[in-house]
Amino acid sequence: MVDLDQGRQPVPATHSSPGRPADGTEVGLPPRDLKQSWGTVILWAVVLGLLVWSWEGADMRPEELVANSANMARYLQGFLQPDFYDWPIYLEEMIITVQIAIWGTALAVLCAIPLGILSSENIAPWWIYHPVRRLMDAFRAINEMVFAMLFVVAVGLGPFAGVLALWIHTTGILAKLFSEAVEAVDPRPVEGIKAVGANWNQEVIFGVVPQVLPLWISYSLYRFESNVRSATVLGIVGAGGIGQILYESIRGFYYGETAALLLIVIVSVTLLDILSQRLRKMVI
């Protein structure tokens, strides 16, 4: 510790004492900004206030965790013997889950490219980017589970409803992320392209897209990961995937089967996360 501190001493300190540089003038600490310290106090007060205010509404009952600990232990016991008897079905359902995520993400990426560009301040005029952004807000605001329920009614039970749900919700998210990347581009190459007499399309294609492509790919892969996770619960509302048998086994108190299903989900999601992380590192 002492060594480290000494190593960090600035060079002038070797020939003049700290706080008193060579020219003899006293260097003190900057005066404390009263406004800033009050700001910190108020900020913490607000945070604490929010937590207290939410206690009742969130039905916080930590004592139950202790009181029912025996029940909980029994519950957990059931999970300790995973039942892989039906594993081919589980695996098949997991693959369908991933397939739902693949199509949902792919369609979303396709739509998010134009919509993302159109909701960028530096590319589109305000009367385009404002309405497009609000539409994307709506896509994002509604959870994929809600979309899934709506689509189950529209197109019937099964994975297709799940694909549609992921598609719409992810389009809203990716369009926002894509447009943030577009708004951060260096305007100079775009101007360079404009100056050769290119049209608006060409400015975007050659000036903007090459700059944002690595980020776009990275965001898309990340959303794919998230969509696999989301797709595991879509089955609860009948929109296909492993969620359906998971829900049934939980409701039927089949702890062993539930544990097996959860393990399959954990392993698949982890593998896909690692894979997509590798891919993302490659493009950035």
């Binding site: 260096d186 100079r188 101007e191 360079g192 392209i193 100056a195 090459p210 700059q211």
Partner: peptide, 11 residues
């Protein structure tokens, strides 16, 4: 137009 910062597309 030739710009001070070249304005080429880096990638």
């Amino acid at each position: 137009v030739v710009f001070q910062q070249f304005n080429l597309v880096g990638r």
